[in-house]
C-alpha cells in the first residue's frame, strides 16, 4: 500500500509541478498586467501543492529522496504527469483550456482526498481546494469571454479545445495501482470521475457556445512515463542547474 500511495502521490504532484512550470513561463508574457499576476499566482498555488505532496510522498518513501531529489533527479520516463499538463502555451486559449481541464480534474481528486482519514493528505487537499476555486472561476470567465466574444476569439478557443481534447482520455484511465487506490477510498471510480468532470465542461461549453470534438482518438502513456516531445524540454530547463552543478545550494 505504501509504495502504491507513493506513486499515486507522485502522479498528482508531478501534474501540479509541470502545470506550475507552464504557468511560470507566462511571467511577464501575459496579455496584460492583472492577468500576468493572476497566472503567476496560479503557478505559485500549483507549485505549493506540488511541494506539499512531494514532502508527504518523501516521508512515505522513508526519506530516501528529498522532495528536491524527486523534482531534479528523475528522468523523463520517471515522471507521471499527464501529457495534457506538459502541453505548451501555444496561445492564450491553449493556456485557458489546459488549465481549466486540469483544475477541474484536480478539484475532483482533492475533494475525494479531503475525506480520507490521513489528516495530512486531507489537510493539503482541503487547503488546495480553497485556492483551486479561484482558478476554476477565473478560467470559466475566460472561456465565456472568448467563446462569446469575437469570431476570432471563438475560433481560437474552439481550436484549443479541438487540439487538446485528444489528451483528456488519460485523465480517466485506471491501471492496477489506481484500482487499488479506488478500493482504499483515495480515488473515485473512472465512470463517476468522468461524469463529474464532463458536467463541468458541458456546463461551461454550453454557456459559451463551444463544442466538444466527437470521436477523438485519445493519446495516453503518462502512467508508464511516456510523454510528448515537450516534456524533455521542460525537464532540460527545470533540471539544468542541478544536473550541471549537482547538489548546488543557494
Amino acid at each position: 500500500m505504501n509504495n502504491e500511495l507513493f506513486i499515486f502521490c507522485l502522479r498528482l504532484a508531478d501534474n501540479c509541478l509541470i502545470l506550475a512550470h507552464r504557468q511560470s513561463e507566462l511571467c511577464s508574457k501575459s496579455p496584460f498586467l492583472e492577468e500576468d499576476i493572476a497566472q503567476t499566482n496560479f503557478g505559485l498555488d500549483l507549485l505549493g501543492q506540488a511541494e506539499a505532496i512531494y514532502n508527504f510522498a518523501a516521508e512515505i518513501e522513508g526519506n530516501i529522496n528529498t522532495p528536491d531529489d524527486l523534482v531534479y533527479k528523475r528522468n523523463e520516463r520517471s515522471f507521471y504527469n499527464f501529457i495534457l499538463s506538459e502541453q505548451p502555451n501555444t496561445d492564450f486559449a491553449f493556456v485557458v483550456i489546459r488549465q481549466y481541464f486540469m483544475s477541474v480534474y484536480l478539484k475532483i481528486i482533492y475533494t475525494t482526498l479531503s475525506n480520507i482519514k490521513d489528516s495530512e493528505l486531507s489537510g493539503i487537499s482541503l487547503k488546495a481546494l480553497k485556492e483551486l476555486d479561484y482558478q476554476i472561476n477565473h478560467f470559466e470567465l475566460w472561456i465565456k469571454r472568448l467563446g462569446l466574444g469575437t469570431k476570432e476569439s471563438k475560433e481560437k478557443i474552439q481550436n484549443a479545445i479541438n487540439e487538446l481534447w485528444i489528451f483528456t482520455g488519460e485523465l480517466f484511465e485506471r491501471d492496477n495501482l489506481d484500482l487499488n487506490m479506488e478500493k482504499n477510498g483515495y480515488l473515485l471510480n473512472s465512470n463517476l470521475f468522468y461524469k463529474k468532470w464532463i458536467n463541468y465542461i458541458n456546463d461551461i461549453f454550453n454557456k459559451s457556445n463551444l463544442n466538444i470534438p466527437k470521436d477523438a482518438y485519445m493519446i495516453t502513456g503518462s502512467k508508464n512515463g511516456i510523454h510528448s516531445e515537450y516534456m524533455g524540454f521542460i525537464l532540460t530547463e527545470m533540471q539544468f542547474l542541478q544536473r550541471t552543478f549537482p547538489d548546488a545550494k543557494w
Partner: peptide
C-alpha cells in the same frame, strides 16, 4: 501552518 499553500 501556511496561510496559502504556496505562501513563500
Amino acid at each position: 501552518t501556511p496561510t496559502y499553500i504556496a505562501c513563500p
